[in-house]
Structure formats: C-alpha cells, structure tokens
Design a protein around this nucleic acid. Sequence first.
DNA 1: GCAGCCTGTTAACAAAAGATAATTAATGCT
DNA 2: AGCATTAATTATCTTTTGTTAACAGGCTGC
Lengths: 222, 222
Amino acid sequence: MQNELSYFHPCGPSTSAEYIIRIILMLDSEKIEFYLNLFKGIDSADLLKVIQGTKQRVLAPGEIYIREGENSQRLAYIKEGLIRCYHVNDKGDEITVLLRWEEQIIASYDSILLHKPSRFTYHALEPTTVLEVNYDEMERLLENKPVFEKARYHFVLDMLAQSLERIESFVLQTPEERYLQLIQDKPDLLQRISDKHVATLLGITPVSLSRIRKRIISRQQH
Amino acid sequence: MQNELSYFHPCGPSTSAEYIIRIILMLDSEKIEFYLNLFKGIDSADLLKVIQGTKQRVLAPGEIYIREGENSQRLAYIKEGLIRCYHVNDKGDEITVLLRWEEQIIASYDSILLHKPSRFTYHALEPTTVLEVNYDEMERLLENKPVFEKARYHFVLDMLAQSLERIESFVLQTPEERYLQLIQDKPDLLQRISDKHVATLLGITPVSLSRIRKRIISRQQH
DNA sequence: GCAGCCTGTTAACAAAAGATAATTAATGCT
DNA sequence: AGCATTAATTATCTTTTGTTAACAGGCTGC
C-alpha cells in the first residue's frame, strides 16, 4: 500500500480533480470500490490521507483478527472471505455472534461503539482479504468533514437496519424458520462454513440444527 | 407549540446567541432537553426551524401512534410514557418487537430506514407524551449541516449499540437469563406492562414466562 | 351486583431443544 | 495409505417450550 503511493508526493497539487485522477490510476479497482463505498463524494485531499492510512491484509483460515480483551480500532472492509465473531461461554463452547463476508464491514463494536475492550474474538474462516483503517485516526483526520459525516451515518444506518432485522427474526420466527430464511437469503454460506457455526448463529445447538434439517428433508419426501 | 412561537418573528436577528436565548425563554425545560438531546450545538437559525416543526402530542393508553402499512416519517422523543411496537402474526397473536420509554426515541424504522410502509403497529401503553418532528422535512431542512450530521450519527450509533446488545442476548442467553437480565436492567418495567408483553419481547409465550417465574421463585425458596 | 372481558396461573399433552455420548463421515497431516 | 482430529448424525434421556384448555382473580360497564 505504502509502496503504491510512494511515487506520489502531494506537494501543491493544481486541482482536486488532478489529485483524484492520479490516485485512481495508482490503485486497483477493488480498492477504489472500497473507498467509494465508504466515502461517496469526499474531498480528494481527505481521500488521499485515508488511502495513505489504509492497509491491505490477508488472513489465513483460522487466523485471529481481533482478540478478546483487545481494544481494537480496526475498521475493515472484507474484500474476500469470511470473518466470524464469537464468544466463549463458561462451558468452553464457542458461540457465533456475528458472521460477515465479502463487501461487508467488520469492526469490534465493543471497542468502536462503546470504547471498551472487545468481549469477542474475530477470526477468519476462509483465506480472507481485508482493507483496514484505524477508526480513531480516521475520525480525527476527517473530523467535521460533512461528506465523511454523511458517509459514516449511512454506514451505521445500514448496520442498524440489518441488526433490527435480525432481532425481528428472533422474536417472530422459530429456529427452523430462521434456518429456512438463511438458506434462502444466503445459500452459498452453508457450503462455506460448518453447520455448528450456523447453529450458534441461529441461537441453537449443532445437534438441534441437525434435527431441524432432518425434519425438513422428511417433510419434503412426504 | 405553534402558539409559543407565534410571538417571535425571525426577521434579521442580530446574533446567533440572541436567537438562542430568546427561544430558550419561550420554551419549557423539557423541550429544551429534547432539542439539546437531538442537536447538540446546532446553529441557532436551524434550531429555530426545527422547533417550529415540532409538535407535542399526548397519547391515551391504547392509542395507536403509527399504524401497520402506514409510511410514517414521525420521529418522536418520548417525554413520558411507554410505546409498544408489535406485529400481528397469522394466528392473530400480537408479538411485541420493541418497547420504548421515556427519554428514548421512537420511529417506524421500516419507513425511515428502509423507505417502506411499516410492518408494525406502534401504540401507547400508558398516557404518553411525545415531541415529534417529521424526519423527511427535518432532513431536508438540515441537509449538509455538519452539527446535524454529527447528532444523527450519534443517535443512530446509540440505537445500533442497543440493538447489538439485544441480538447478543438472544444468541448467548436462555429465555430465563434474558428475563432475569430485564428485571435487573429495568425493574420498574414489570410493574408497568403486562407479562404477556414482556414474554413476547423475550421471544417466548406468556405461558412459558409464567413457568419461568415459578421456577425462579421455587429456586429462591429452596 | 353481575356478566363479560382480560390477565395470569396451572394442567396435560405434544413438540422441540439441551446435554451427553456413541457412531459415522469427512478432513487433514505426516 | 494410515492415523488423528473434527464435524455431523443419531440415540437416549431430561428439560423446556408450545399449544390448548380450564380456572381463578381483577377490572369494567351496565
């Protein structure tokens, strides 16, 4: 990342447009997609600073991204792969609290939203590529920039809508209905992760999920 | 509300400070609390416009505030009382999806977040006083005002933190644990609403909640 | 007062879920 | 290939929940 930009010294640019064009030429399309996603229409000088602070990382399957107890300010866009956020209960079982995949944003919401150490561990389930920024730094950098404010508002709004939908599913649906909904909404997910992670995500045990699947199949045959 | 401000004509104010002071003198303290809550530090001219668009409403117990199918842009601060958001399932049972009380904000998130008709009905459970604005109007009025962007970001961030906490409770806790948590976090709530509403809020049936209570009591005696 | 309505409790039964353990299938590693 | 590890299924048993219905207490309206 740093390499890509080392050729470019931002000393007195003639116009904003020139800035943008030169940056874009240096970046691969995935990264541009990421920035446009996060900061639609932001001022180019600010955009440059953000780009300079962005790191690309590749996580191996099983690799921990944010550890429990850590106060991580990492905000990452998942370019490819799958990240699981889990909690270890008293019995030592890992409970999946959140799953995030390509084109989604991941962060320790304990640290970023509540300013406290993460109660969860975040790790990759597949080879995962993320583009990461430091939230604190970025916020300091872009404080009082209207476009940034708007961008992050819409980002949080989006997460809120998703969260409320998930709450609804717990209140209004049975575990079986939640499972059927999931395979409808994201059918490839079941090929990618183990059932036990799906189970805890749905709020049930792996054994129970296995029975639900059996029930569904026997109903189809009938 | 309209009355209180009809004496005041904003034609060429000398300073922002003067604006603010004159408005504050005309308002009762609860309303000021509301505005400060929503727009910490906003420009006084904008604040005035928002105030002019704010209505105070009193809802009788049982009175519907937002009806299912409605596309309501109401964003309300609950000054006093309790509003329940519920869904009627195929069997005709009402399922409580959300409960909001004094000092909280209530809105149809279907309409405001997703721009579609509300799938839920919102109604008062107690005599309830709300201060309401039209979200669309307000957004148009305050577009590109940095302080407003910041305020609404923090408001949504707050709701997101609450939502994520509730999701956690469904994934990590049993119904009984959720119930115990609720009476710890908000003990007065149980005196104010019926058990059946608590039950569906926890994702269980009223019968089941009754049994949970019995179990807890018998365990205490033992 | 009384009938009707609603709420909460209890009972009885069916269905589903949790816990545990054993078995089988799949996967990875050397 | 063979061994070890992990995941998924199945079985058994216990616990919990859902469902339905009955019943008691409280409240309301007439």
